[in-house]
């Protein structure tokens, strides 16, 4: 860990201004991912801005019938919220499928969106990794890739986004609200929030320098059956090999998003149009552009079969 300076501002705008001002500054909230990465010198911020006391920890009804989730709402609290459990059950289920109780107590809504990948080469500073050290190469592409991405990948990076929560947020068409160093607010559709790796896998979101997430909002509930199915080798405390988030209406229409297959939560409009035709058709659309490695080719049939189970459960 490199030495760093630390401050604890009082308002979101002050926090954003500080981040814009100081090169190498980072926000810290729960710290469940950032501190680990700092100890390994994968993250080397020069300045930490503690956002825990900015009052962004409330869940409130929004004027359009949706829900406004403060950036600092802890994962445990979000998963347990009555409104979330009733109207956005897929979000609650996704949250509870992730990490463990202790980590969920500490992790925040915004922090969860900003998790770094769990690619093992990203975690080993002796190995080339374009995400950690741009231009050094991707060790995973021809290395250990069983866990990694199959769609939307590039020659520069096949990492996945590890979050379960983000998959549900994508399914629910959430919006990320921010404030920047100049005090300007912005709303980013979750679809546009995470980036594909392309040639710059080190840039993972569309946040600008100094931009602070203040809230994540959900539009009004869409009803239907909410399912989150996470597939993993061990029963708990493991990242998804793949996951399927779905909202299915009685007529068989609905939405579907995947986790564990791409650099971002993966959702394809054409796939949703195919939902009444069944899992095979949906999977074909979702993974039309898939370029799996030999080690993670199993994810293609796994997605289709899991979709099949999810759609059957929805009919249930």
């Amino acid at each position: 860990m490199k030495p760093f300076s630390f401050e604890r501002p009082n308002t979101p705008a002050e926090a954003a201004a500080a981040a814009a001002r100081v090169d190498g500054a980072k926000f810290v909230a729960g710290g469940t991912n950032l501190l680990d990465l700092m100890k390994l010198q994968i993250e080397t911020p020069t300045h930490l801005i503690d956002v825990n006391r900015l009052g962004l920890d409330k869940i409130e009804a929004s004027s359009d019938g949706g829900l406004r989730i403060g950036a600092l709402v802890r994962n445990s609290d979000l998963a347990a919220d009555q409104r979330v459990r009733r109207d956005y059950a897929v979000l609650s289920r996704a949250l509870l499928a992730g990490a463990n109780g202790q980590l969920r107590n500490q992790s925040t809504t915004a922090g969860n969106l900003l998790q770094r990948t769990r690619c093992p080469y990203f975690y080993d500073t002796n190995q080339p990794c374009n995400k950690r050290l741009p231009g050094s190469g991707c060790s995973a592409l021809h290395g250990f890739s069983r866990q990694l991405g199959i769609v939307g990948t590039s020659d520069a990076c096949i990492a996945t986004h590890p979050s379960d929560m983000a998959v549900a947020m994508r399914l629910l068409d959430a919006t990320v609200q921010t404030v920047n160093g100049a005090g300007a607010e912005r709303r980013i559709a979750i679809a546009d929030f995470h980036r594909l790796p392309g040639d710059t896998p080190q840039i993972e979101t569309t946040l600008q320098r100094g931009e602070l997430i203040t809230a994540v909002t959900l539009p009004k509930p869409v009803g239907g059956k909410h399912i989150y199915r996470k597939v993993r080798d061990r029963a708990s405390f493991a990242f998804a090999l793949i996951s399927v988030a779905a909202i299915v209406q009685r007529d068989g229409t609905g939405r579907v998003a995947l986790g564990g297959v791409a650099h971002k939560p993966w959702r394809v409009e054409a796939a949703e149009a195919a939902m009444p035709r069944g899992a095979k058709a949906v999977a074909e659309q979702l993974l039309a552009e898939a370029m799996p490695t030999e080690q993670n080719a199993y994810k293609r049939p796994l997605v289709e079969r899991t979709l099949g189970a999810v759609l059957a459960e929805a009919k249930g």
Partner: peptide, 11 residues
């Protein structure tokens, strides 16, 4: 211990 999985209680 994130990459080298051993059984947890749930298993």
């Amino acid at each position: 211990l994130a990459g080298y999985e051993v059984p947890v209680h749930g298993d």
